[in-house]
Design a protein around this nucleic acid. Structure first.
Lengths: 169, 169
DNA sequence: ATGAACTTGAGAATCATTATCAAAATAATT
DNA sequence: AATTATTTTGATAATGATTCTCAAGTTCAT
């Protein structure tokens, strides 16, 4: 069950790995968490790593379910929690919506969300990061994490129109 | 029921108002929302305005319940939603915790939270604000709102100790 | 292979929030 | 002040995401 490519090959990755090499990588991560290697954890991890954007627990549940593995929500949540406890994934919860997760090895970035169409654009800004450090230090804190979410209206004519026609609600 | 000071007088406010003047102010706000003036809404509004920090819906429910007014959760949530729809209060939801609300007339500020003891420190930083505007503009967005939450460990010896003894979880 | 320890998943439980709807309150009109 | 159309309330049920429970299944060191 390891010679069938269950997921498309993302050629954008920095390194090309054989399926076996990838599996070793995944196992290593699981063991770093002090957990046993199971099929479910392998599958979750594969999907989280392969994706290049944001997932909900639901997304991951469905993606794993499409493979041969049966899985429960509890398992997804449990493992995602373990991953984010060790900062392998970033968990962002906002606005009463389901939590979004993403693999955190890639460059850190923040989000700019269009409040009309829901489009999410990522950005990074070193100056902002630096200022955050300074603020925390000036208040006697050691900064360990941050969430910066910008909200606005994107440039699409549809969203601009909606925005201008309902400026105060 | 208007001559008993139900809440401590916050002398830091920009203007001193008689109870009657305050009531007129509150009524005006409720009418601006296109809603009828009710005792419950007056009470909620009074508490939200009087407080200078963050409230949960639960806090507000309890505070109103301490007055003579009986109130239900639904009413609290409904009215807070109406207030935040017109930007009279700011609603912040994060990390699966209950939403926090605050009156938004005051200076804008962001939050720095100690992940050990839960202490919240407010700050404002014009430079960061300016950079946010620039980022949004450069991506073609009109910025309408943002959430910046910093997380760290505060300077108390207890929190520092906890932090250093468990550096990787 | 064996067994101790860890995992799983189905479903129950929880928690914040929202919806429902009959009864009560408001405000505009006599 | 009484009437009435409309809005609001609050008790309770419903929802939706997440977490808990625990018997049954799996992993892995021996």
């Amino acid at each position: 069950m390891s010679d069938i490519p269950l997921l498309p090959n993302h050629q954008s990755g920095p390194k090309k790995l054989t399926p076996e090499q990838e599996n070793q990588q995944l196992k290593k991560i699981i063991r770093e968490l002090g957990l046993k290697v199971t099929q479910q954890r392998m599958d979750i991890l594969r999907i989280v790593k392969a994706g290049d954007r944001h997932f909900t627990a639901q997304d991951i549940f469905e993606a794993v379910s499409e493979t041969n593995t049966s899985i429960g929500f509890a398992t997804v949540y449990r493992f995602l929690k373990a991953l984010s406890a060790k900062a392998f994934v970033t968990e962002v919860r906002m606005g009463g919506m389901p939590a979004r997760y993403e693999w955190s090895s890639q460059e850190h970035h923040d989000h700019l969300t269009c409040t009309v169409c829901g489009k999410v654009v990522e950005f990074e800004n070193d100056e902002i990061e630096k200022l955050q450090e300074e603020v925390a230090k000036s208040l006697g804190f050691v900064l360990t994490d941050h969430i910066l979410e910008l909200f606005g209206v994107c440039s699409s004519s549809h969203c601009q129109k909606v925005y201008k026609s309902a400026p105060e609600s």
